[in-house]
């Protein structure tokens, strides 16, 4: 029985390996995506309808996808890497898994601070990480900057997400770039002292905590709030745009680049160019209530209702360059 069973397993194994190579033989465009499936599926299905080119994807977190790209080397089926954070793209470029692309269309559509100078990656949508507050318990006049959340008036009233999340790491990296490490650490220590509850595992829980009254202010990506407002229009929480007299609101990107070992870089580049074309920009950003990278394309009405704001014009690659410093700083300051 033992021999029969192992024989069966071996044949199943070979069948699976064979079927795997067989699927690799046909060549649709393959995207390794950190962006969740529900946010990319409608977009890529539209691309297939418009061009006849099939797009397939594999989702995981960016560090794993980058490591997988590096491991697969020239044999990778991937053509595009899509992430939800500029730091990850910077890291992918450093690791050498992305290819420089020269494209007038991409350069015209994507502001220079939201793309790699060598063309290895381009922002597709913008994400603002900003302050949210309870409209029941906080007057907007009391809010001013990210740093001001370290003041004593917010003692026991601030909620933050875990420092393990890359969005916070990028936020702190940008603060280091703006304020320097010493000043940033003072601010972060102040935030930690003001926490109303231990850091949360995700932004949605944080918005819920502000709505339920566990804390009064917090820092989140706006689309989390947007999603909840879509379901509950009278949610007593709204956004505040900080640092308007100084650096501006912290911006991150969801962006993509062509994989260095892609077998069809021209087709991959064409998909990226299509993603930053005006009609697709609106749909791509609206699916997750983000901001288009093309500034002339209007955002979703829920997003537009929060008003215009000054975004920090700093190059988003700084997030990657300073990320490890940011993580160490948050560890020192006791941000869990």
């Amino acid at each position: 029985m033992r021999i029969q069973l192992s024989g069966a397993i071996v044949s199943v194994l070979f069948a699976l390996i064979a079927s795997n190579t067989a699927t690799q033989a046909a060549t649709p465009l393959v995207v390794y995506s950190e962006r969740r499936e529900p946010l990319i599926q409608p977009i890529f299905e539209r691309y297939t309808r418009e061009t006849g080119i099939e797009v397939r994807w594999l989702t995981d977190v960016a560090p794993v996808l980058i490591e997988r790209l590096a491991a697969e080397g020239a044999a990778t089926p991937a053509d595009i890497l899509l992430t939800v954070d500029a730091g990850s793209l910077w890291q992918a470029a450093e690791r050498g898994v992305l290819k420089p692309v020269q494209s007038a269309k991409l350069e015209a559509a994507v502001p220079a601070n939201l793309r790699d100078a060598q063309g290895r990656w381009f922002g597709i949508s913008q994400r603002a990480r900003t302050i949210i507050y309870s409209t029941e318990r906080v007057a907007a006049a009391n809010l001013s900057t990210y740093a001001a959340l370290a003041e004593d008036q917010w003692r026991g009233k601030l909620c933050l997400r875990s420092s393990k999340k890359i969005y916070n790491q990028s936020l702190i990296a940008m603060m280091i770039a703006r304020l320097g490490e010493v000043e940033t650490e003072k601010v972060v220590r102040g935030w930690v002292a003001n926490l109303a509850a231990p850091p949360f595992a995700d932004d949605t829980l944080l918005v819920q905590a502000v709505a339920a009254g566990r804390c009064d202010v917090g820092i989140v990506n706006t689309y989390y709030l947007g999603r909840m407002i879509k379901d509950t229009p009278d949610l007593p929480v709204t956004v505040f745009w900080p640092d308007q007299a100084t650096a501006g609101v912290h911006i991150n990107i969801s962006g993509a680049g062509v994989v260095a070992a892609s077998q069809q870089p021209a087709a991959a580049q064409a998909l990226l160019e299509w993603l930053v074309s005006a009609p697709i920009q609106a749909e791509f950003a609206a699916l997750n209530l983000e901001f288009p990278v093309r500034t002339e394309v209007a955002a979703d009405p829920i997003v537009a209702a929060w008003g215009a704001f000054r975004a920090d014009p700093i190059h988003v690659a700084e997030a990657g360059r300073l990320q490890a410093d940011a993580v160490r700083l948050m560890d020192r300051a006791g941000w869990k």
Partner: peptide
Amino acid sequence: LMLRPFGWDTLAVRIYAQTAEG
């Protein structure tokens, strides 16, 4: 999640695909 063949999902992978953003 990390080692699965391309295009070959299990239920745990489906859960991940939906929950990555909380």
